[in-house]
Design a protein around this nucleic acid. Structure first.
Lengths: 139, 139
DNA sequence: CGGTATCCTTGGTGATACTG
DNA sequence: CAGTATCACCAAGGATACCG
């Protein structure tokens, strides 16, 4: 016999815990940064051999990315001051992207995520296999 | 199999898995790991004071999360071997969640991102302001 | 070349109700 | 307590076409 409806409980919980959820200053930024395209763009531009890349180069390197997502990600990163966009008025136009110092500092951290994903892929895959096997036998 | 240094493992892993490739499994893993609920669960379970938490504790700590998303996230992390689920057959049943070593290793990386976000929040915000101002004047 | 605009699918997400 | 099941919504993301 509930004293509150689910909606009321939820509303109360949200009010009480907004400090953890939304009030954390880093929360929104964390959300924005926790994006696979962000990670890949930073990784692409943070490489020792490719600190400056053209739009088409990025598009090629990030296999499977749509123009929409690439442009959207680049704009977002530019707005946050993580990279700069240089337009050279040739014909056709040439555009270069380059990480700022701020972007480079994030790259140092983000590359660990990508490295972690690649490094522990085998372990995760075998864990999944094990888990699925146990579920199958359990049912 | 000879033991490898961390650097060697990293090099080998990079050769096998490349998140820049669209069809590489590590691309999916990167995407999965870049999830807000994953980040929050890892953060919750990675704290010094809360390495073991019950479902209801997590639910309370991550205020605003729906049961569906919490369960879904926990199952996914369990399947990938990032955390373990312990069921104590009390009445009513008690369930504890705890990060594995693998989960802790990811948490170490994730908390660096959180630290970065906190440290550079002001800079990003002022960059946005500047950017939006220029866009506004440009139009 | 480096985008923007548009449409459209799909699955992530939340709300609600029910159960062992 | 700790889930599962179901429905419904809407925005993220992809495909396509067009433009400066």
């Amino acid at each position: 016999m509930p004293t509150m409806t689910a909606a009321q409980q939820r509303a109360r919980a949200k009010a009480d815990y907004d400090a953890f959820m939304a009030d954390c200053p880093s929360r929104k930024l964390l959300d924005r940064v926790s994006d696979k395209w962000v990670a890949l763009v930073l990784e692409a531009l943070g490489g020792d051999d490719s600190q400056v890349m053209r739009y088409s180069e990025l598009s090629r390197k990030l296999a499977g990315v749509s123009q929409k997502m690439l442009t959207q990600t680049l704009r977002s990163l530019e707005r946050d001051g993580l990279l700069t966009r240089h337009v050279t008025p040739t014909v056709p136009v040439t555009v270069h992207y380059e990480l700022t110092e701020l972007g480079l500092s994030l790259h140092q951290v983000m590359r660990e995520i990508k490295a972690w994903a690649e490094m522990h892929m085998d372990e995760v895959l075998s864990n999944r296999e094990e888990y699925d096997k146990q579920i199958a036998s359990g049912v």
